[in-house]
């Protein structure tokens, strides 16, 4: 864990902490989902969160994004304690989430989906009194967001349902990148994709990092994680078992820590 100078992990250990969790506990009755977990995401890094089923990955992510309230513990954004009442609060604070089911309206076009819930209104009286949408500007910004990410689509006017799985994922990622100010959380972004599309989505995740955003990547796919992550946060039994880097540990090491066969 000491290769600060690795070209693969730029600015990782020296960069400031963006999002942090301290000793977060979440219990449901007598079931403990999180047993005092710590979490640390640094600026500009891709942090993979891995763990066996039931290790507490998704509970941790939900606690970080305000989708559930921890029983105890602290969550800090840029070093300041935050109490998200819901996912909207987290979004307002600059945290965007790409959900596994993508949260899109398939019959609406790409631009509409990018701006869904955050539509732009026309300037002047048309917007303020007549509440008119600024479709042209949303279309232009959607176009720009997609080309910023070097993601090519047949046409921005297509309905999302007309896109392939990888293209849809691309739109969801572009939406997060367009609005995130601090970090993007992605839940299994490559789970339903073929090899080529997986590659495209991984490329997208890298370009989000290049824009200075931190990325949390929840994934079961070890090769993907080792391909792209700067650091790997390993969950086991509701706690953080270890944080390793792809440089210092092998996939077998990570699986061993996940299953409790080894410690870091």
């Amino acid at each position: 864990m000491s290769d600060v100078n690795s070209p693969m992990a730029p600015a990782t250990l020296s960069a400031p902490v963006v999002l942090e969790a301290r000793n977060v506990i979440k219990t449901y009755g007598h079931v403990t989902a999180l047993a005092g977990v710590d979490f640390e995401l640094r600026a500009g890094e891709i942090l993979a969160v891995v763990g066996d089923n039931g290790a507490g990955k998704s509970t941790l992510i939900k606690a970080l994004t305000g989708a559930l309230h921890p029983t105890s513990g602290e969550i800090l954004l840029d070093g300041i304690p935050v109490h998200f009442k819901g996912p909207l609060d987290a979004r307002h604070a600059g945290i965007e989430t790409v959900y596994q089911d993508l949260a899109m309206a398939p019959a609406l076009d790409i631009a509409s989906n990018l701006f869904l819930g955050r539509e732009l209104r026309a300037p002047g009286i048309l917007g303020s009194v007549f509440r008119r949408l600024d479709k042209k500007r949303m279309r232009q910004e959607a176009q720009r967001a997609m080309s910023d990410l070097k993601f090519r689509l047949p046409s921005i006017d297509n309905a999302v349902e007309a896109l392939s799985g990888g293209q849809r994922q691309g739109v969801a990622v572009a939406r997060a990148a367009l609005f995130a100010r601090k970090l993007v959380i992605m839940d299994e972004p490559t789970a339903a994709l073929g090899v080529r599309e997986t590659g495209q989505v991984l490329e997208l995740i890298r370009s989000i990092r290049e824009r200075g955003l931190a990325v949390v990547l929840i994934s079961h796919n070890m090769p993907n994680v080792f391909d792209i992550a700067d650091r790997i946060h390993i969950m086991r039994l509701g706690r953080r078992a270890a944080v390793v880097t792809p440089k210092t540990h092998s996939m077998n090491d990570v699986v061993a820590i996940m299953t409790g066969a080894a410690t870091a």
């Binding site: 089911d101 309206a105 019959a107 509440r131």
Partner: peptide, 20 residues
């Protein structure tokens, strides 16, 4: 926006909720 959201809710209510 109101109309856009009518379509979104009919199309995928869960997505509509998630985008706020």
């Amino acid at each position: 926006k109101w109309g856009r959201h009518v379509y979104a809710i009919g199309n995928n209510p869960e997505a509509a909720r998630l985008v706020g």
